[in-house]
Amino acid sequence: MSLLIESARSVVKDSFDLFWSLLKVMVPVMIAVKIAQDLGLVESLAQWLSPLMYIVGLPEEAGLIWVSALLVNIYGGAAVFIGLMPDLQLTVADATILWSMVLIAHALPVEQRIAQKAGASFWGTSALRFFGALAYGAILNAIYKAGDWLQQPLELAWLPQLEDTSKASWSDWAWSNIQSLFWVFVIIFVLLVVLKLFDILKINDLLSKMITPVLRIMGIEGRATTLTMFGTLLGLTYGGALIIKEAQAGHVAHKDIVLSLCFMSLCHSLIEDTLLVMALGADISGVLFGRFIFSVIVVAMIAAWMKRRPQPVASKA
Rank of each mutant, 00 (worst) to 15 (best):
L128I: 00
L134I: 14
N141Y: 15
G119E: 14
P153D: 12
A142M: 06
Q116H: 06
T125A: 04
R129S: 13
F122E: 02
R129D: 00
S121P: 04
G132M: 02
G132N: 09
L150S: 00
K117E: 03
A133I: 04
W123C: 01
Q152P: 02
G147N: 10
S126Y: 03
L128F: 01
S126T: 13
T125H: 07
G119L: 14
F131Q: 04
Y136N: 01
K117Y: 06
P153A: 13
P153F: 13
R113E: 08
G124C: 07
I139D: 12
S121K: 04
G147T: 09
Y144D: 01
L134S: 10
S126F: 09
A142S: 10
L134A: 02
K145W: 03
L134N: 08
L134G: 06
Y144F: 13
G137V: 08
G132D: 06
I143A: 14
K145L: 08
F130E: 05
K145T: 07
S126M: 10
Q116A: 08
A127R: 03
I139E: 12
G137K: 09
A135C: 11
A120P: 09
L140D: 12
L128Y: 01
Y136A: 06
A138P: 02
L150K: 07
D148P: 01
F131T: 07
T125I: 11
F130H: 07
L150M: 11
F130K: 03
R129I: 00
A115I: 00
Q151A: 15
S121V: 00
A120T: 07
A120F: 12
A146H: 14
Y144Q: 01
D148K: 05
L134M: 14
W123M: 05
L134F: 11
F130N: 05
W149T: 05
F122L: 08
Q112M: 12
A146F: 14
R113C: 04
A133E: 05
A127F: 10
F131V: 07
I143K: 08
D148S: 09
D148L: 08
Q112P: 01
A118Q: 06
F131M: 03
Q152F: 13
T125K: 04
G147S: 11
G147F: 13
Q116L: 03
Q151L: 15
N141H: 15
P153H: 12
L128N: 01
Q151D: 15
A127V: 03
Y144M: 03
